[in-house]
Design a binder for these strands. Structure first.
Length: 611
RNA sequence: GCCGACGUAGCUCAGCUGGUAGAGCAGCUGAUUCGUAAUCAGCAGGUCACGAGUUCGAAUCUCGUCGUCGGCUCCA
């Protein structure tokens, strides 16, 4: 996205890795091939991306995956010819002339100007060097860098075709985007696709079905509205338990609020009309004798309700910081094309809390929230994530960002301090903050490589004012609190979607829907097995007993496939000695223990939330 | 919402250029009572997403609707 909206700096270009150069070069080879087949194609941008490259183009005919074979064959020819990538510096006038003649991103002169290249050219600031790159007959406006020769592209493959707006803007024409990937060697390419196959096995949508965690009934319940099966509900409840324990210790108080509210609440909060597109349409009816219509909206966020709770009672500085927490259910009308398994849904439960505090308390509170994040990430063994610190753009105060220059400066400085002090790696992105304050998002990647915000921590110094929230200060006056919105566990839907992929469905025992399955070897030991199962369940261990007439091998296989944490194999030997033969999903046969010893170990693992 | 692909039993999939549906697993029933990843046999399961159209005849061709997926814009 950034590739086409903002141009890369010369430093970024110089820093492009060998693989990125190779892929970018492959994009040129792709364009060369497409032009041989359809000379009228108009090209826009063709950068390397995380898993490969793409080139955007406009063409009267639709390119479909069935065309890939033909395109790849042409690409192979170009690679085989081992053409040199020649860097051609030109003056602005020369470049403009070539674009007018349709010779950019083309194999030769054409009747039509290279319209997208012309547009890109006009966007290049005065004084910046303009370069073209040539391989064979193909000439393109391009800042490079490239590999030396087309023959350096060892192995490539086209992967998909999609559509994209020119420069990523909905108002611009829609282009066809052909995706591919390339590597130095065939072996690396094969390894890449093997890795993708593996990733598909951890896809939460697949595992959600196999492990009976959740399901969707788009017909009768509605798209993007997940229903949680018993196994998935265990995950939810264990996460809530974790959150409640942690938040209680962190001085949070729990609250509960309804799922909907009248229109006026969202007028006050500013969600209407700015957020209206993302809200379900209102329910409208007349409530009073006068027959005046009233509108109710399903809540898209919990903050307005929480602000009301802050204001419900007179507050003093002695009450601050006030931390209100709720696993609130929100509803957002996400665009149909956006829905994606559990990762983007229309009903979601947020690990939400709002911390109302003074400016003096802010840094300590924000730091505490940050530490909470790290604590959680450690529990889940989450190490591949990116902290994204979004700040405002002073040039857009009063337009995109509330006009409080001093507060912006102050809070951003405090947030930055917290991040730097904690030693967490983060990237700072200007102009990306919410209108009411800076925020930190935690980015993670799904099994198939899509990026998501898993958690968020936002500063709000604007909305409390809109709600007229006040507390009595020590000198007898009134002040408006700052507010921190935080959701370190994000929403149940997305967080669990992420956890399913993170653990590939094999949850640590504290989270596992089924912690123990007792497997009697034959019917003769069913009574003993039931007794052991009952003893475990009495201790609130999620244990079941498999009394099917299957052989022990089949029972074990099923338990392994269903990713049960522990299996207890019970036969004549165990029954005689009052033991249980422990088999863990991870390590296999671990030998016999007394039921009491096994239970003690299990309870310790659960209490410590061991991975 | 936009562009494209796809939609066959609970799941994974077969069904060639139109001749009114098939497998494996899961399920149910019966037999088997077995020591660390699959015991055997039988039975049952589908308005081929939905609705129109073309045709003597549609899972198969056309159009529309809905949904899912891959992207784009957007977000937890």
């Amino acid at each position: 996205m950034a590739e086409e909206v903002s141009r890369k700096t010369p430093e970024q270009r110089a820093g492009m890795s060998d693989l990125e150069r190779l892929r970018h070069s492959c994009a040129h080879v792709l364009a060369t091939a497409i032009l041989k087949l359809w000379p009228e194609a108009q090209f826009a941008a063709g950068p390397p991306v995380e898993a490969g490259f793409y080139y955007d183009l406009e063409l009267g005919r639709r390119i479909s995956p069935e065309d890939f074979e033909q395109i790849e064959a042409e690409m192979k020819k170009t690679v085989k010819e081992n053409q040199t990538f020649e860097r051609v510096p030109v003056s602005r006038d020369e470049a403009l002339k070539l674009a007018e003649e349709g010779r950019l991103a083309a194999l030769g002169p054409r009747g039509e100007p290279s319209k997208f290249k012309l547009d890109i050219l006009r966007g290049i600031p005065e004084g910046e060097e303009i370069t073209l790159y040539r391989n064979g007959d193909f000439l393109d406006l391009c800042a490079g860098p490239h590999v030396m020769r087309t023959g350096n592209i060892g192995a490539f493959k086209l992967t998909s075709v999609a559509s994209a707006y020119y420069k990523g803007d909905e108002r611009n024409p829609q282009l066809q985007r052909v995706y591919g990937t390339a590597f130095k060697t065939r072996a690396e390419l094969d390894a890449h696709f093997a890795m993708l196959e593996e990733a598909k096995k951890r896809d939460h949508r697949k595992l959600g079905k196999e492990l009976e965690l959740f399901f969707f009934d788009a017909e009768d319940v509605g798209p993007g509205l997940p229903l949680w099966l018993p196994n998935g509900t265990v995950l939810i409840e264990e996460l809530e338990k974790l959150a409640k324990e942690t938040e209680f210790r962190g001085g949070y108080q729990r609250v509960r609020t309804p799922h909907l509210a009248r229109e006026s609440l969202y007028i006050t909060s500013g969600h209407l009309p700015y957020y209206k597109e993302s809200m379900f349409p209102p329910m409208e009816f007349s409530e009073d004798a006068a027959g005046d219509p009233v509108k109710y909206y399903l809540k898209a966020m919990n903050c307005p309700h929480h602000h009301k709770l802050f204001g419900a009672v007179p507050r003093s500085y002695r009450d601050l910081p006030l931390r209100l927490a709720e696993y609130g259910t929100c509803y957002r009308y996400e665009q149909s094309g956006e829905l994606f398994g559990l990762m983007r849904v229309r009903s979601m439960q947020m690990n939400d809390a709002h911390i109302y505090c003074t400016r003096e308390q802010f840094e300590a509170e924000f730091n505490a929230v940050n530490e909470l994040y790290l604590k959680y990430f450690k529990i889940f063994g989450l190490d591949k994530y990116l902290m994204r610190f979004s700040t405002h753009d002073p040039a857009r105060l009063g337009e995109k960002f509330v006009d409080e220059p001093e507060l912006w400066r102050e809070t951003e400085e405090m947030v930055r301090n917290v991040l730097v002090k904690s030693g967490i790696a983060f990237v700072e992105i200007p102009n990306e903050a919410a209108f009411y304050g800076p925020n930190i998002d935690v980015q993670v990647w799904s099994a198939i490589g899509r990026e998501f915000t898993i958690a968020t921590n936002q500063v709000d110094f604007s909305v409390p004012k809109r709600f007229g929230l006040k507390y009595k200060t020590s000198d007898g006056g009134f002040d408006t609190p700052l507010c921190i919105h935080r959701a370190p566990l994000g929403t149940h839907e997305r967080f669990i979607g992420f956890l399913i992929e993170h653990f590939a469905g094999a949850f640590p025992v504290w989270l596992a829907p089924e912690q123990v399955r007792v497997l009697p070897i034959s019917e003769k030991h069913a009574a003993y097995a039931r007794q052991v199962t009952a003893a475990l369940r009495k201790e609130e261990i999620r244990a079941t007993c498999d009394e099917s007439p299957d052989k022990i091998g089949a029972k074990i296989r099923l338990a392994q496939i269903e990713k049960v944490s522990y299996m207890l194999v019970l036969g004549a030997r165990e029954e005689a000695a009052d033991l249980v033969a422990v088999r863990s999903r991870k390590l296999g046969d671990e030998g016999a223990l007394s039921a009491g010893e096994f239970l003690a170990r299990l309870k310790r693992e659960i209490a410590n939330r061991e991975l």
